[in-house]
């Protein structure tokens, strides 16, 4: 474990879960600090200067969403939330409050690592203001500077809204975006209740970008939460 290893604060009340995270993340060259309550977690986050926070939504002393809000008052560091299944609204609230991504329990270490990597990369990009001008995933290529979209060799024509939607997803590639976040970003804050707009355009976008719209490769649905562009 080197000094320059990324620092992660795990806020989780269950000792077994903490043990699993500590052990697994420790083997991946992370420095892990633990907190078993929301209050302690906020203190740790201030003291340890972490690169990322893993936050369980079900804490004994505070609502996880409150913890996210409290953190977002002073830092933009990436937050990954852990939540139980069947609590979609809770997840969405936490994401809307500023959390970067989420994982549903139970999850494998592979999924967690993927989320952590995406989150760390985005926070690095944000700090350096250097977004790649050309984004590529699989066959899909989006040239943000020239506003060109290709699938394989074929150029795809998009409407302005479709393009705005795609470029928003590209900017946050690999990260989940809630319906509300996408609607605000693409249509403006007045449209946050019109989720069907988003769904219709997403469907159109899939028709144009995916080879089989019912077997998505790029534009993934996070059911009940939002969408994610495969990074």
């Amino acid at each position: 474990m080197a000094i320059s290893d990324p620092v992660i604060v795990v806020i989780e009340d269950d000792p077994q879960m903490r043990r699993f995270l500590r052990t697994s993340l420790g083997t991946m060259e992370f420095q892990v600090y633990e907190a078993d309550s929301g209050q302690q977690g906020l203190v740790e986050a201030g003291v340890r200067k972490p690169d990322l926070i893993v936050l369980d939504l079900g804490l004994p002393d505070m609502d996880g969403v409150e913890v996210v809000r409290a953190l977002r008052e002073w830092t933009m560091l990436p937050i990954i939330i852990l939540s139980a299944r069947s609590a979609e609204q809770h997840k969405v609230d936490a994401l809307d409050a500023g959390a970067d991504d989420y994982l549903t329990k139970p999850f494998g270490i592979g999924e967690l690592m993927a989320r952590i990597r995406v989150a760390l990369r985005h926070s690095a990009n944000n700090s350096e203001h250097a977004i790649d001008q050309v984004f590529t995933t699989g066959e899909l290529k989006v040239d943000l500077a020239r506003r060109l979209v290709h699938v394989g060799e074929h150029e795809v024509h998009l409407t302005p809204i479709e393009y705005r939607l795609l470029s928003t997803l590209v900017k946050h590639a690999g990260k989940v975006l809630t319906h509300r976040q996408l609607l605000t970003e693409v249509w403006g804050p007045a449209y946050v209740e019109n989720a069907h707009y988003l769904r219709i355009y997403m469907s159109q976008l899939r028709q144009k970008l995916e080879t089989d719209p019912t077997r998505m490769k790029y534009l993934l649905t996070e059911s009940g939460v939002g969408y994610r562009l495969k990074a």
Binding site: A195, H196, R199, I200, M202, S203, R206, P213, T214, R215, M216, L220, T221, S223
Partner: peptide, 15 residues
């Protein structure tokens, strides 16, 4: 209840 394109649901299921 929300208005959703059916292919989105089926797509999500198949994924």
């Amino acid at each position: 209840r929300q208005w959703v394109p059916l292919d989105e649901i089926i797509g999500s299921v198949l994924t």
